[in-house]
Design a protein around this nucleic acid. Structure first.
Lengths: 193, 193, 193, 193
DNA sequence: GATGAATGAGTGTTCATTCAT
DNA sequence: GATGAATGAACACTCATTCAT
């Protein structure tokens, strides 16, 4: 025990930078100057670079953090097949709405930033998806990666919807993900490999 | 008055700039330097600014042009209620796929560029939509503007889908736009290719 | 011939930048900021970059210019074997004395800047050297490249000599370049002027 | 008092910094960041500054150390007039070859760093030189400071010579430092314009 | 004393925009 | 009108130096 705070202010600054960056990226997109982020975080420009050697590293860190956060959240579910899946989509949508950077990340506008975390999220999505598919509430032919892409679309939609209509994009996606009406529902059939 | 060729080359230059900008924005996104566009258009940088006082103006013009083009296309339809509507969505999706700038415009990433044309497109969408709604193949509660937002989402989805799965985003949106299965719409199940 | 001044001020600016850079590099070394050079040349920082896309390009241009100048000068000689050779060495020494950048270039401190011109200079040196060697006034085993290196040494020496002793470094190098006294050269006493 | 180990590690750190700096400066030149040196020395950046308040102080210390080392070495000679002198020049040349910092110091590229040690070295050089001059093997008109400058030149030359020709610069300097064969001693000729 | 995080002025470079030709 | 050179404010990033721990 007794690990004294090894570098208390460094941790605090790192957190402040991440927070400032998260907000700045969310509100203004990732093109915002690092100097602005440094200023908002109340640190010098050099400090930002000490913690994140390049701007890309900071962007990745912020995105990855958001993505990981979502993946963690996804892992918490597990009881109600379809409900869980759709609820998670809703949460994700809410998280990313009005977050330009997260939206960009999910849109693929950002190159390969946060790739690892994107994969983690896809994995988390996978189990929710599989369960929901097994229960017969979701089309069996879509993969987690595809759901990820659909999510990106939902976010894009939501960001253009007036506040009074929030949720419509998700609603439509969810409706579209259900098995075609030809197969009523009820039991689950053919689980996919 | 003897205006032999009043501004023949001015018109030509304008067209060349727009063409170059369209391609450049589509391929490389709107962050591409104006100098590059000028060079590709075979004109001087000053000429670009004569025609489009700011870069934003050029971006708007290009987007508006694309949007108008789509609106024009939409106006050509009108015979088969649901089919027309869905076909148009498919065309729009195809147009924007791999067009970074158009995708951005539809994503709302670009601020208010091309607002007027966005409205025009929404209008064109409106009549297709109304017809399809009247025929009972599309949810009655969505407006043209909302379809526009959904379109943005479809594009975002499609851009993240592997080539082998192209069309899935649109397919799901279309499925989601159908009236809920609870209230079957008579026949109608518009299969798409 | 009627080639109207195609871009008179561009040429003038280029010349001013080169002049300012030459003086700045000579006096302060190549680590001087480009902004300072721009300021001294009376142009904006961007203008420097238009003419010389990177700092290295400017350094190279300045060095190459100096080196070419010397090579040109070398080409003018050709009558008195030993005298020409030694006189050229003296000229080169005078040129580079108090020129930090040129000295650096000849010292090899500068990486590969101006390599082509270094080669040109070596070539020019070659013919002077060959002639002097054939006349028996210079050791036959040294090559032009080696003379180049020796020159670098002379410059380094001269830069550390008090003004009253200028020329001593060259004098010693010249003496050292003569054939060993064991094989007296009959005439030859190459007074240098 | 009980100063058990008063500042044992301080001394050790100082030594480690000097060693790291010596190697770093030698290999990479004096433009290498202090952080790199600190890291190689296994100390913090602040520790470097405690021992050497500015970077210039560290550079000076390293150079001075090298110069002192050479001066010490020079003091060890004393038996064979000319031989000692020339051997020392050879040693010095070998020491500085591939030592960017030392070469810089001797080149005068470094401003006034290590002036005191430069003087010490000159002094050591002086006695070797005087002895050699008295024995008639070295020109009588050169001073120790001038030999120092010549040494700088030799180093510059050597650094540009291909490995197969190492020693040529020194050889020529040595030859040039011998009394002119024609005139046993007495006057010198070689007036330059 | 040692540490290494923080600082912040400074560097090379880019690019939308202006303006002389 | 067209040209493309000039401008200069940004920008990401570096690094000697300072300072809290």
């Amino acid at each position: 025990m007794g690990t004294r705070a090894p570098r208390a202010d460094a941790l605090r600054n790192r957190a402040r930078i991440l927070t400032a960056a998260r907000e700045a990226f969310a509100r203004d997109g990732v093109d915002i100057p690092l100097d602005t982020i440094a200023e908002r975080a109340g640190v010098g420009a050099g400090t930002v670079h000490r913690h994140f050697p390049t701007k890309e590293a900071l962007v990745t860190a912020v995105i990855a953090d958001r993505l990981d956060h979502l993946a963690d959240r996804a892992a918490k579910f597990g009881d109600n097949p379809a409900e869980d899946f759709f609820t998670f989509l809703a949460e994700l949508t809410d998280s990313a709405r009005d977050n330009l950077a997260l939206a960009s990340a999910l849109n693929g506008t950002l190159g390969t930033e946060g790739e690892a975390s994107t994969a983690r999220l896809a994995e988390a999505l996978q189990s929710l998806l599989s369960t929901a598919q097994r229960s017969g509430d979701v089309r069996r032919d879509v993969t987690a990666l595809e759901v990820h892409a659909i999510l990106a679309g939902v976010l894009a939609t939501e960001s253009r919807l007036p506040p009074t209509r929030r949720g419509l994009g998700l609603e439509i996606a969810i409706a579209g993900l259900r098995p075609t009406s030809a197969q009523p529902r009820g039991d689950s059939d053919a689980k996919r490999g």
